[in-house]
Design a protein around this nucleic acid. Structure first.
Lengths: 358, 358
DNA sequence: TTGTAGGCGTTATCAA
DNA sequence: TTGATAACGCCTACAA
């Protein structure tokens, strides 16, 4: 015996001060077996076959003593925290919650927990966040902030931290990625726009260092080309950040620069599209009577705005779940080749896209 | 010497297989000092004053060797993971992301990470989630799923896990809580409704085992009473879940039951209000010409829907930040009395509330 | 100012 | 089938 252990003895967690936490050793001595036996029973270790009578006694004792395993101690020993990290730009960006939901749900089924980090679009914060997570707190990382050339991805390789990119991918697929099939979504959208009679098309795009932005623009161009159309230079605008405010500014600039408005503005995402709607209104244009607008994402409530927005719905929670699956795969097979998974989106035709020349 | 240590020796992280992780002992032997000295330097331990020359050498060595502290090992020793858990019903519910953002931002400033758990409105999942987190993975928990009588709150007390309730509080303030001041928000909203000439008021409320639902309804009644008005029993409806679908069903029932629609439907939150708008439309009522509708929360885009929704904006990220502060306070002073913090909301008057009798 | 030694709670390996 | 022992990496009295 090490010291005087007079404080426990009763079963109840002693309403007094700090109920000292019961550990495996306590169960062991109470059940009259060795700690390692307890450990084997409690983790149902398949190798150490324990007699059912002992196992029963141990489990019973664990329950009466109110044993709760110490995850930290186990992690130190096993080298696994059963926790994964998710890094996003801004959890208030409506694309992320459904993804997180999918990730968290799938991970929980497999006994993992999820830690999240916002970077606020700051690349430095991204790197720091990753470093934090990698310091052995997580078994792997799902990166929602991936750029085409991403230092975090490279760092993960250096450190041997399993990493999966979600929503975007890197230039040469340095790591596995689960993305929306932007090209196909844009293709469908363009087909619809052209079918509605539009020919004079303006585009609000985003910086091309994000694979989504790049894929959407190239998908758009490919779609137009199939109809013998293109986006003239003076009809192409770029926003730095994909939010309502940026959309408003870009659309204002667009409408100022040329006296004749285009027939349709195709925005890189819904928030930008909403900004564009506001800018059009502010200049006295009716949407969609005078000008049509399209978005991308189908974020919540865009079917309820005025006018209901034509857009493309990614299947975000599915993307989230797939990325979780993908990461779990990598945990068991770290040396496997990176995989690219494309999840197919769906067109949502609504009133913000009107028919022309009728 | 324990074994043959021929594998390290070079500085670079050896491109071969698994670059064995460098630890404090490696730095110590490389710098020719004792591990404890290294530890003191790296944590800038204020008590053990280390000569600047040694400290400098140690830091340099740590950097060249690419040392990264093992958070798990430190946690085991110190009993603190520098991590807190946040439990929410559903991260897709738009009230949560801003709160999470506030929490995460504030915690990061203080060197904490955030793990989140969705319960999907399942009380059993709540309890299990809490148990998971409490198994020493987190230093404290922020609970976003609190009911008036909440077993998780009680369990936290038993285990001595610091816990703060966010958005809702328990019946007798068993733990600190940071909430929206629903009563005052509802009061302002009712004043506006009455000022717009409405007298025949229907209410879609929520189950009274949530403090928010309870406070909003009582605030609403108090507000009406101040004008000599009340909600007749047949004008009061309850939804089990506060989403669009539930709102639609409740409003349909409400409109069916009496041939004459009320002048206004005051919904317990925005999603329910949107459902109500849809139900009214489905029955051929124009909003707000034939019937006005109000919500609560001011979730993203409700200013853009048709018609723009009159609602009350909580200051959610502020609520999140305050709850983080509150939890950090409890970590340093666990025995302090529970505190209730009310964050004041703001009325947002928009077109869904029309003037009557004009 | 620095070194010594012990332990946080668990699990893995070896021996019985 | 079970027990003994060591180690995971770090921190912190205490001693020097």
């Amino acid at each position: 015996m090490t010291g005087s252990d007079e404080r426990n003895g009763t079963v109840a967690p002693a309403p007094g001060r700090k109920a000292r936490r019961v550990k495996i050793a306590d169960i062991a001595s109470a059940a009259g077996v060795h700690p390692s036996t307890v450990s084997r029973v409690l983790r149902a270790d398949p190798r150490g076959r324990i007699s059912e009578s002992v196992a029963e006694r141990v489990r019973e004792m664990a329950k009466t003593l109110g044993y709760r395993p110490d995850a930290v101690a186990a992690s130190l020993r096993t080298g696994s925290t059963q926790t994964i990290g998710v890094i996003v730009h801004d959890i208030e960006d409506p694309v992320y919650p459904p993804i997180l939901r999918g990730i968290e749900q799938r991970l929980l089924e497999r006994g993992f927990m999820t830690v999240v980090g916002n970077t606020g679009y700051d690349p430095h914060a991204e790197a720091e966040m990753f470093e934090q997570m990698a310091n052995r707190m997580v078994d792997g990382v799902i990166l929602g902030t991936t750029r085409l050339q991403d230092p975090v991805v490279q760092r993960a390789q250096e450190l041997g931290v399993p990493l999966v990119s979600v929503l975007r991918s890197t230039e040469h697929l340095e790591c596995s990625a689960v993305v929306n099939d932007c090209a196909s979504g844009m293709r469908e959208l363009v087909d619809a726009v052209v079918a509605h009679g539009h020919r004079d098309i303006a585009v609000i795009a985003a910086p091309q260092d994000l694979s989504t932005a790049r894929d959407r623009l190239s998908g758009l161009r490919a779609g137009l080309a199939a109809h013998g159309l293109e986006v003239p230079e003076e009809r192409l605008f770029t926003v730095e950040r994909m939010d309502v405010e940026a959309g408003r500014r870009a659309a204002s600039t667009l409408l100022e620069r040329r006296p004749d408005p285009p027939q349709v503005i195709m925005a890189v995402n819904d928030l930008v599209a909403i900004g564009a709607i506001q800018a059009c209104r502010a200049r006295g244009l009716r949407v969609p009577d005078d000008i049509s607008i399209t978005g991308y994402n189908d974020i919540p409530l865009v079917d309820m705005i005025d006018p209901p927005l034509t857009t493309v719905a990614m299947n975000l929670s599915e993307i989230g779940m797939r990325s979780a699956d993908c990461l779990l795969d990598r945990l068991s097979a770290p040396e496997a080749e990176p995989q690219l998974t494309r999840v197919r989106p769906e067109l949502r035709l609504r009133e913000s896209l009107a028919t022309i020349g009728r």
